[in-house]
Design a binder for these strands. Sequence first.
DNA 1: CGCGTTTCTGGTGGCGCTACCATCACGGTA
DNA 2: TACCGTGATGGTAGCGCCACCAGAAACGCG
Lengths: 341, 341
Amino acid sequence: MKPKQRLPDRKSKVTIREVALNAKVSETTVSRIMRNEGPISEETREKVMKSVRELGYVPNRIAGALASLNTHLVGVIVPSLKNIVFPEVLRGIQSGLKGNHMQAVISVTEYDLATEEEMVRGLLAWNPVAVLVTGLTHNEATSRMLRQSLGRVVEMMEIDAEPIDAAVGMSHRSAGYETIRHLLTKGYRRFGYVAHDIGPDRRARLRHEGMVQALSEAGLGFIAESRAETPSSVGIGKAMTARLLERAPDISVAIYSNDDMAVGGVFHCMETGRSIPSDLAIFGFNGLEIGQQLPQPLSTVRSNRFLIGRTAIEQILNDKERPGSPVRVDTGFEIVDGATA
Amino acid sequence: MKPKQRLPDRKSKVTIREVALNAKVSETTVSRIMRNEGPISEETREKVMKSVRELGYVPNRIAGALASLNTHLVGVIVPSLKNIVFPEVLRGIQSGLKGNHMQAVISVTEYDLATEEEMVRGLLAWNPVAVLVTGLTHNEATSRMLRQSLGRVVEMMEIDAEPIDAAVGMSHRSAGYETIRHLLTKGYRRFGYVAHDIGPDRRARLRHEGMVQALSEAGLGFIAESRAETPSSVGIGKAMTARLLERAPDISVAIYSNDDMAVGGVFHCMETGRSIPSDLAIFGFNGLEIGQQLPQPLSTVRSNRFLIGRTAIEQILNDKERPGSPVRVDTGFEIVDGATA
DNA sequence: CGCGTTTCTGGTGGCGCTACCATCACGGTA
DNA sequence: TACCGTGATGGTAGCGCCACCAGAAACGCG
């Protein structure tokens, strides 16, 4: 009597049992060899590896994860893939993962906290070793899940508030503040602000808050602000610059919500024959390559995005357990004194 | 006698059993409710969902996957995240996945086929529903694994050769060919070529081959080529343009391996006071936003990257089984007759 | 030579869930 | 009344692997 067939015959599936039988050792031994664990004689190892190759055995990680309660999986949640910023964070993550036989499961929220909740729930169902999320703001359910989850939780990009477990990033508030301080030092007094839809982009809002504070301490404020209701892009940067200059033609410097927008500002000036920075100075945020390669390198703030991803992974590799109290790692930022401001 | 403790107490883990006990139904019923499957009375459903909420139950997908042999996981392998091209493919993938409670596991090869092999092996160990890889060229072991794997395999970006299961993308060879035809029609005869390191970038090589073929049919060839040995970037595009013009100052049009490089070419011309296209015409590849927002929109070829990712997912959702013979889906391309050529 | 100690190998009970079969109540139909 | 279909629920044997315990064999060491 042949064994009951539960599911369609998944071809001739090779399990650890087949390998063990073929090599005439126990399943335990095969398992240990596959995991490079415990003392194994060279002879046995070779015998088993021969069977592994012959049979084309690929260990089933699902079963392994269930038995060992360890998945080697890292959940990653980023808000967007529309510009190069988060892919760079992902690159940092991938570079840190490499060689640790860990794998990243990636989800994108489109800056929506309800979507984030759904993604977090989906990720936690895989019992990941760690979850890397973006930002320190989540909805109630998400925060609860992350707090109660068993693995590490790293909140990336910001460090302006208290994290659940660990935060790796920079202070966007001080970046905004220092931007204004820098521009004040350079003599600018008539400020304009150009932004994409910063409703959902909390970090852009924090930078703006930092700017407003520094301006207010100097007895100043933005003369005009022009904000789009769409995500950032070079095109939107152009359009919003045009609108800003219509409303307030006499500003001396325009600060942008990020470099994509600022590059749009530069292109607008090129098209309308304004000289930068004499007619209008331009200041961005992120320090993207494109900005630095413009005929006049963009003045901006370098955020270390690759480093943030990399450091986030290092945090969880260095310490599998949550620290006693939440940790913040500052990856810093740097004012890039380019040629546009 | 308390039960044997196999592993450190994972806090008070809530399993389907706890929910079943709490709601006074069987595990089977809870399982069915969690999966929205089979007939369930409204009364029972509510009773169970109440317990689920009270206990904060999150189904363990690992166990579910092991029992059902279905993971709802899609493995994705891309060569790079250094420019915006592959993130756009990923966006297409994520958009197709959304609402199908599927998840993407993403790996990056850095254009290295041995790394690709390692990543494929790692992904297959998770029994994914499908694996999406980039390109049609793999090493021997990778091809074998993909061919023998049980799920769907979609090779993205190219359709110039025979796929394993399905290919979604465009013909890079004809894109190159049509580029030259287009430029010949516009009267250009003195061609230069500027590239990043196209050793590992097979698709850039295919485009180049198509160009060479079209040129040769017209009794022409590239007067000069300038190739870097680094990945593409705006900066490298600038530098290679400078080198090209040193060697062959009399070319009338420079064709670039992609838009990043071409934008570098545009910036070089701006810096050196060359007018585009009269002194030098410039032609890229990809149709990135940045190119279209330049003061003069870049002449280029639009590759539909979001669509490729999206279509790849649709392929595997529409048909869980491999087709009888390999399928190729052409997402097309479009010559963008901009202002730079 | 006796007795630890180290090195290597094996048996097996779950991990948490779902596929598969059974069961039971109920209503409609011949 | 007998029978069948349908809706709703339950019991349980694995899925493939690994943690845990054992045990055998080879190796020092006084």
